[in-house]
Each structure stands twice: as structure tokens, then as C-alpha cells.
Amino acid sequence: MHMSDGLLNAPVSVAFLVIAAMGVGFALVKARADLDDRTAPMAGLVATFIFAVQMINFPILPGASGHLLGGALAAILVGPYVGALCVTIVLVVQALLFADGGLTALGANVTNMALIGTATGFVVALALRRLAQRGKGGLAAVAFVSAFVNTVVAATGFVVEYAIGGAGGVEIGKVALLMWGLHALIGIGEGLITAVTVTSVASIRPDLVYLLRGTKKPLEVRS
């Protein structure tokens, strides 16, 4: 979902660079509280994993593919603030080292995938936290749903940005329909990858799953 330069006009690109910078700055401040000797290495590995999995485009329709965005995955494993930073680092490395995602478009790309995607994934996961605490099936379901929603809402970010200042003047309804349709399919892939990843981590190191943190005791007592 990395847009190239030129799809949005210059003022909108700059505006989203500012928005992204503010969001990432806020995340940097808030992330501190969620990072310690144990979770800091985990956060680095989550960013690394998201980079790796983003390389794997999976087919969704003849002639179209999708890849993980990673917002919900990061939010569930390391929390929303650290998670937003994980996805941001991935996007910056992709843009600078691999020419994937434009430079003036970086603000919009960070806004969509790192900020909107992670925040949405986290809000959904948090709302369904009780289900996630009910064991592996519940956690898998919560991971799937929050990842699906994160994909569709992040795609909506592009639709909104294009409506504000997109190049070419294509009818926004047409853009929205394509984006939503394709990303509903990609969201299924995102959901499956997120569910498998999160439940795998939870089965080995449940203490490293942010969403489950502080729930150990009530879970054992079955209150």
C-alpha cells in the first residue's frame, strides 16, 4: 500500500508529512513507558518481522496482490505507540533503501499504515480484549478481526487523501470502491497472518503479548 510520489499534490503531501511527524513524535514520547529490557528487543524483532512479511505479496485476484501492513500485529504484540514506531521504521527503510514508497508520499504512507493502521488495529483489539483472554481461539479471532479492520481503514486513509488533493481528478467513488473491494480481500490475508503470528508468540511467550499483559491472574482464577 506504498504510494509513489505524485499521486497526491504537493500541499497535501506536505500536510501529511507534518501530520505523520506529529503522530510519530507523540508515539516516541508515549512508547517509553512500554519499553524495558525485555520488550525493547521484542519491539525490534516485531519491526523486523513486519519488514520481512511485507516482502511477501500474496495473490488476491488475477492481476492483483496484497501484502501485510502490520498495524494490528504490532499493536497486539508491543502496544500501539511502539507498534506505530515499528511500522514507521519499516516504511522509512523501504523508502530510503529499496525505493519502495515515495519520499514526498512518505508522510501519507506513514499516516495510513503506521498511524491509522496501528491505532485502528489496537482500538479493535482492545474492544475485544475479553475474547482474546479466553484462550487461543479467542486470541486468533481478535487478531484476525483487528487486522482486517486495520487494512480496510488504512486503505480509507488513501481514499480521504486522494479526495483532498489527488492527481488526475478521478471520481472519488470509483477510487473508494476499488480500494475497499481490494483491501477487503487483502484484509483476509492480513487477518490470517496476524492470527497465526500472534497465537504463535502467545503459545511460546504469552508474557510478550502486549494485549494479554496484566491479565494473567484473572485468567487463571477464571473470575
Binding site: 516482502m55 486503505a155 480500494m179 483491501h183 487483502i186
Partner: peptide, 11 residues
């Protein structure tokens, strides 16, 4: 990995 355009590129 699939070489086809992703959702945004396709759009």
C-alpha cells in the same frame, strides 16, 4: 512473492 500490483497500485 506475487509480482502483481498490490491493492493500491492496482487501484
Amino acid at each position: 512473492a506475487s509480482g502483481d500490483p498490490d491493492g493500491l497500485d492496482k487501484t
